[in-house]
Amino acid sequence: MTNLALFDLDHTLLPIDSDYEWGQFLVRIGAVDAAEYARRNDEFFAQYQAGTLDPVEYLEFALGTLARYPRRELDAMHQQYMREVIEPAIRPRAQYLVRRHQDAGDLVGIITATNRFVTEPIARAFGVPHLIAATPAVDAQGNLTGKLAGTPTSGPGKVDHMHAWLDKLGMRFEDFGSSHFYSDSHNDIPLLSVVSHPVATNPSAKLAAHASEQGWPLLHLFND
C-alpha cells in the first residue's frame, strides 16, 4: 500500500521564507519601490509570524506586484532569484529527507501557502513533481493578472486542497497506509492533526509547544 509524504516549504525544507525573500530580491534588483515594498512586505511577514495574516490580502498584494511585468521578464527574474537566493539555501539534509520518502515509493508532495509562481521552480529543484500552492490567475497570454485563482492554500485550506489534489489523482486520503506531514508552523496544525505521522520540523515556539503536548516528534534540519 502506498504511503503519503507531504512537506511544507518555507522554514521546513528551506531555512528561509521563499516568499519574503522573493520580495527582498525584487527590492535589491530595483523591480519595485524599495521603501514602500519593504514596508508592506515586513508588515505581512510579521502578521504571518503572529498568525494574523489575511492570506487573500497578502497574496493579491504579492501577485499585484508580479502583474506589472510580462511573463517572460518575470521568468528571467525568477531564474536569477533561484541562482542567487534559493539554490544556496537548499540543504543536503532536507534533500535527503525528501529522497528517503521517494525511494520508499511514497507519494511525495509539497504543500505551501506561497504562490505557485514563486514555488514551482523550487519544488522542481527538490525533485518533487507534485506541488499544492496558491494559484495566480493568468490572462489569455499567460501573464499574471494580480488576482488569486481559487482559494488560499493556508491553514485549514491545506486540508481541503490536499483532498482536492488527491481526488484529481484518483486517490483518497483514507486509502494510504500511512501519511506524513512535515511543517514548521502552528498555522499548519489543521493538516498536522489529520495525518497519521505529523512531524514538527524546525518548529516555531508555538508549534513546538503544541507538538510536545500532542506527543508529536520534533525534527531539526538546520541546526548544523
Rank of each mutant, 00 (worst) to 15 (best):
M1Q: 12
A5L: 06
L9N: 12
D10S: 08
T12Y: 03
L13G: 07
D19P: 05
E21R: 07
Q24C: 11
L26A: 08
V27I: 15
G30R: 00
A31S: 10
V32Q: 01
A35N: 09
A35V: 10
E36P: 05
R40E: 15
N41C: 05
N41Y: 09
F44T: 04
F44R: 02
Q47K: 08
A50S: 14
T52D: 13
L53I: 13
D54C: 05
P55Y: 02
V56E: 12
L63C: 05
L63E: 11
A67G: 02
Y69D: 05
Y69V: 02
R71Y: 15
R72E: 15
E73F: 01
D75V: 08
A76G: 03
A76V: 07
H78L: 13
M82G: 07
R83Y: 08
E84P: 03
P88K: 00
P88M: 11
P88A: 11
R93H: 13
R93Q: 15
A94K: 06
R100A: 13
H101N: 03
G105A: 10
D106S: 09
I111W: 03
I111T: 05
I111Q: 01
I111S: 01
T112G: 06
A113N: 06
T114V: 09
V118N: 12
P121L: 07
P121C: 10
R124F: 06
R124P: 06
F126Y: 14
V128A: 05
I132M: 14
I132V: 14
A133T: 02
A133G: 01
T135R: 08
V138D: 01
V138L: 14
G142W: 15
G142D: 11
N143P: 04
G146H: 04
L148R: 08
S154F: 15
S154P: 01
G155S: 02
G155C: 03
G157I: 03
V159M: 04
V159D: 03
H163D: 14
H163K: 12
A164N: 04
L166P: 00
L166S: 00
D167Y: 00
L169S: 00
L169I: 00
M171W: 00
M171D: 00
E174N: 05
D175I: 00
F176W: 09
F176P: 09
F176G: 12
G177W: 04
S179K: 01
S179F: 06
S183M: 11
H186D: 13
N187M: 12
D188E: 06
I189E: 11
L191T: 03
V199G: 09
T201G: 07
T201Q: 03
N202A: 04
K206C: 10
A208V: 08
A209D: 14
L219G: 02
H220T: 13
